[in-house]
């Protein structure tokens, strides 16, 4: 019953977010349809889609496999730089389509190489090592002259918010689709087994190293794709805008608030939180960040399974539930 409701909601949401932006186009105007979105709202939806990609991709390695990477922003940055390097008139000067093809490939190859040492680490060690790897990548790229150094790269400006909206929305749909497919496949069951008990999974015949690497590479490729689209959209790429540690944290926060390890949780978390951030953007960024910090603390303490668990899981909005949940984790 619940899964059917969720299915209907999903189809309705996809239809809405596919059709709504069309009302901003000239043919729709000519037909006398009212524009239901303005340009800034369309850009807002593009950013929301971007965070759906980042959060859902993080969920594949962090939520399903239980390896909470704090460095996924590295893949976003690498994807953005790959596209930017190929399309920048001073460098590759190739069409955006070609540049976008490279955006998942470069991070995937990097994830394959760094994944072997990193995924041998667990818990804290994995989290901090990934965080460090991301910072190191940003720093090295910032020092590379052929990548524009601290100035960055400038892909040609393409003035079409609608194009980039559909590219980002497509990437988001792809990411959710890939997650859905993984969760139904052998790979997904293997990853969950690794998360719950890696030794037991290995004993049962799960090739843990291979599964973890696949999850890491898939997450990196999808994250990189979002980076590539962002590079084309923003037509300016440097360390500060594509390697911000904040993104690594935001994707984790969104996944956890929504409910990590599920398909819908990260989507709900990304849409809800990014919409909230955009609504608050009129105020000072500092207070938004304070709110995020408080929200993170509240989520961790009171909603460790995320809000989606109230819809599809066992959590109930009762005082007794919160008390029990607190008692399990407190001293």
């Amino acid at each position: 019953m619940r899964s059917r409701v969720l299915g209907v909601v999903t189809v309705a949401a996809v239809a809405l977010f596919t059709l709504l932006p069309l009302t901003t186009t000239d043919p729709a105007r000519a037909m006398g349809l009212p524009a239901l979105l303005d340009r800034s709202q369309l850009r807002g939806l593009t950013t929301i889609s971007m965070f759906v990609v980042l959060t859902s991709a993080w969920n594949i390695i962090g939520g399903l496999a239980g390896y909470p990477s704090f460095g996924n922003v590295a893949f976003f940055g690498l994807g953005a730089y790959a596209t930017a390097l190929l399309t920048d008139p001073d460098h590759g000067h190739l069409p955006l389509g070609v540049g976008l093809l490279a955006s998942p490939l470069v991070p995937a190859v990097v994830a394959l190489v760094v994944g072997f040492p990193l995924l041998r680490l667990r818990g804290h060690y994995f989290s901090i090592a990934t965080l460090g790897t991301a910072i190191a990548f940003g720093e090295v790229i910032n020092n590379m002259d052929f990548l524009g150094g601290a100035t960055g790269l400038f892909p040609p400006i393409i003035r079409s918010d609608l194009l980039f909206y559909y590219l980002m929305f497509g990437a988001a749909a792809l990411t959710v689709g890939v997650t859905w497919w993984i969760m139904r496949s052998r790979l997904g069951h293997g990853l969950v087994a690794i998360r719950e008990n890696e030794e037991a999974a290995a004993v049962l015949g799960v090739d843990t190293t291979r599964y973890k690497i696949i999850a890491f590479v898939v997450a990196a490729a999808l994250t990189g794709l979002a980076g590539g689209v962002f590079a084309g959209w923003n037509s300016f790429v440097n360390r500060d805008n594509v390697f911000p540690v904040d993104y690594s944290v935001q994707m984790i926060l969104m996944a956890v608030i929504g409910g990590s390890g599920t398909i819908s949780g990260p989507v709900v978390g990304a849409v809800g939180l990014e919409a909230l951030i955009q609504l608050l953007a009129g105020g000072s960024g500092v207070y938004t960040q304070i709110l995020l910090g408080v929200l993170l603390a509240v989520t961790v303490i009171f909603l460790p399974r995320g809000v989606i668990d109230f819809v599809i899981g066992r959590s109930r909005l009762t005082l007794a539930h919160f008390r029990r949940s607190l008692r399990q984790t407190s001293v």
Binding site: H124, I290, G293, V294, L295, L296
Partner: peptide, 13 residues
């Protein structure tokens, strides 16, 4: 890890 990160974010800002 997440909780202390949240505290960090709040203090820094």
């Amino acid at each position: 890890l997440l909780l202390t990160f949240g505290v960090n974010l709040a203090i820094v800002n």
